[in-house]
Simulated scan of single mutants.
Amino acid sequence: MKKIKLFPKIFLFTFAMMLLISFIAHLLIFLIAPAQNVLVTNILVTNAGASTLSEVDMPRLITQTMLKTFPISILCCATISALFSYFFSRGITTPILSLSKSANQMSKLEPDAKAAVLSTDEIGALATDINNLYQSLLLTIRNLELEKEKVSLAEKEKIDFLRTASHELKTPVTELNATLENMILGIGEYRDYETYLPKCKEITEQLGDMIRDILNASRLQTQGNNEPCSNFSLRTLLTELCEPYRLIAEAKGVKFKIELSSDAFVYLPEGQLKKAISNILSNAVNYTEAGQSISVVFDKNKLSVSNECRVLPPEQLQHIFEPFYRPDLAHSQATGGNGLGLYIVQTILDKLRLKYQFVPMPNDRGMSFTIQF
């Protein structure tokens, strides 16, 4: 019976039970009916007009009658039992087989697989639960696939970042090593220690700044934002951040304008946001020449940092947020930094889920970085 399918199994079980019930019913009738004391009187009329009374053996008559009718009765009961068992088994197994077929399709992760809800009873509720479970499974699989893609992309970005960082560090390290070696050997102009020692110190400071930025970028990339959020005023934060950069800009002969026409309180990691805005302000000051201007405007939950400078072409803008990318073709750290400023800004703003864009100003007067809070 273990290898028999569900429909014949239910059919045989139901048919056997129906036959058993029919057999028991016939047996009871056969045992009980003859025991009933029924007296039947026959009136016999003779040719002479006289009548006589005679008693009939009713139990014997009933027994004989039942024995004669049992084959037909049992055949009729068996036929009715077979029909009943067939329709009963079909009614029970049809929704179960439908669920089995749907489950088989679901096991193959077919997107259009769905269990048919044929009733409102427990089987219908089971079909609904299976559909809900399958949809949750598909959603979970899609989310896992997205997470897998994100992890793969993050791993690729990490590897590319480390490769680029190694390449960027190699140049100043090689320059510093060559300078020190020539100074030790006393080759030519390198004997002038008073000239080249400050140069070596400048290179080490550049290395220190680059290593610090690399560590900060790596920490943001791998660990995310562990700083707790706090509620603070953007107007107060911008006023504090802009003051030192205003002094630096004025020392370079650059006009620095601040327009904070509105205020807003946000619930964000204050340190991370300060780092991002500081990098934006630093880039604006570094890339603005004397006689030009920088404007910081905050109005209606929108911060804009605009500076008059050479407008970046589209082919450079599409790479501007890549690590160690500098629009300066000479890749000079004196003018173009180490190329991590905007990469750190992008990493922070993405993690804070803030909308931002870096686009040319109207009339191509310069570049503008905007953040929507």
Rank of each mutant, 00 (worst) to 15 (best):
K2G: 11
K3Q: 07
K5A: 05
K5S: 11
L6D: 06
L6A: 06
F11W: 14
T14F: 10
T14C: 13
A16N: 10
M18V: 12
L19F: 08
L20K: 02
I21Q: 09
L28V: 15
I29W: 06
I29M: 15
N37V: 13
V40I: 15
T41I: 15
V45I: 14
T46F: 14
E55A: 10
T63F: 00
T65W: 05
L67K: 02
L67M: 07
T69V: 11
S73Q: 03
I74E: 02
C76A: 08
C77P: 01
F84D: 01
F88R: 05
R90K: 07
I92R: 00
P95H: 04
I96K: 04
L97R: 07
K101F: 06
S102D: 02
A103Q: 09
N104S: 14
S107H: 09
P111T: 09
A113T: 09
A113F: 06
L118R: 13
L118F: 12
L118S: 12
D121I: 14
D121N: 15
A125G: 12
A127T: 11
I130D: 09
N131V: 13
Q135T: 15
L137D: 07
L138F: 06
L138P: 06
I141T: 13
I141G: 05
R142A: 15
L144T: 12
L144D: 15
K150C: 06
L153F: 14
K158C: 10
L162H: 07
R163D: 12
R163V: 14
E168P: 04
L169P: 05
T171K: 10
A178L: 06
A178I: 06
A178P: 03
N182H: 07
M183S: 02
I184M: 09
L185T: 00
G186M: 08
G188M: 04
C200R: 01
E202P: 04
I203V: 10
E205H: 06
Q206Y: 05
L207R: 03
L207W: 03
G208N: 09
D209R: 01
D209M: 08
D209E: 05
I211L: 11
R212V: 03
D213C: 06
D213F: 06
L215W: 03
L215N: 01
T222F: 13
P228D: 14
S230K: 13
S233T: 03
S233H: 04
L238D: 10
C242R: 04
E243H: 14
Y245W: 14
A249S: 13
K252Y: 14
K252C: 05
K255W: 07
K257T: 13
D263C: 06
P269Q: 08
P269C: 02
P269V: 04
G271I: 03
L273P: 01
N279H: 13
I280A: 06
L281V: 05
V285H: 05
N286Y: 10
V296C: 11
F298M: 14
F298Q: 08
F298E: 09
D299L: 09
S304T: 12
V305K: 03
E308L: 13
R310C: 02
V311D: 00
P313Y: 01
E315D: 10
E315I: 03
L317I: 04
Q318A: 02
I320C: 01
E322F: 03
Y325G: 00
A330S: 11
A330P: 00
A334F: 05
G337P: 05
G337T: 06
I344N: 04
I344S: 11
T347Q: 13
T347W: 02
F358S: 08
V359K: 10
M361D: 07
N363P: 00
F369W: 08
I371C: 09
I371N: 08
Q372S: 13
